[in-house]
Design a protein around this nucleic acid. Structure first.
Lengths: 118, 118
DNA sequence: TCAATATTTCGATCATATTGGAAATATGGA
DNA sequence: TCCATATTTCCAATATGATCGAAATATTGA
């Protein structure tokens, strides 16, 4: 993963409202949640939500699909995993057994992408 | 972990220079790296580095200790682990076996705190 | 086509973060 | 004490991001 990509993701998440949105979607799973339901759940204005969803989407952290007149947003677990892996790269010099397992586990999270059985 | 804490950490990392500093410290391990060496390695101005180290420090992501006339900075693995755990909380509803292992692994990373054998 | 719901775009104001130069502080050695 | 090294603080210019109201677009059903 490029450093710029990770920076975009992290700065997107470094915002109270966007972090709440993303965590909601992470909990919700690959099926995702409609924008309106997100707005209702978190109690935010629809235009603020739209702007924040746009930031998260451009960062690659979430994806969307239309369903009827709603637009469903879902976390991109693969992207998140890539970002976490980038953050932990060569943790503690790569040698210690304490940090090493992260790599393999993060790789497994990739399987939790939208569309996968999860 | 409080949401505000996680936001501070993520927004601290959502910056090209600070992410580079933090990744350098994550790689370096609990012994840490002197500020001057960080500046030389990354090729940044000492005042910019100082400001960025301050942001990372206030976010709780790194710690510091004086050693002679140098100040040694080191990643706080426990804090990082807490932030990652907060981000992944109840991933995919908590049920799926694909996301669940993250929790246990992140707990183990806590052992990689400064001072621990790592 | 008309009305209702869902979401996005626009535009202005306001606040906050970044940058780089220069000076200030702190430590160690001669 | 004096000097060199290491790091931080101060400052002003610039740029970027957040917020909110209001209007615009898109989809569905009558």
């Amino acid at each position: 993963m490029e450093s710029t990509t990770a920076v975009n993701m992290l700065s997107a998440l470094g915002h109270e409202g966007r972090l709440a949105i993303f965590r909601l979607l992470v909990k919700a799973g690959p099926e995702g949640v409609a924008a309106g339901e997100i707005a209702r759940t978190l109690g935010v204005l629809p235009n603020s939500l739209s702007a924040n969803l746009n930031v998260l989407s451009h960062a690659g952290l979430i994806g969307s699909r239309r369903e009827g007149r709603s637009i469903i947003y879902a976390a991109d677990y693969g992207a998140m995993s890539g970002m976490l892996g980038f953050l932990m790269e060569d943790c503690c010099g790569g040698a210690p057994e304490i940090c090493a397992p992260l790599g393999s586990v993060l790789a497994r999270v990739n399987a939790c992408a939208p569309g996968a059985r999860c």
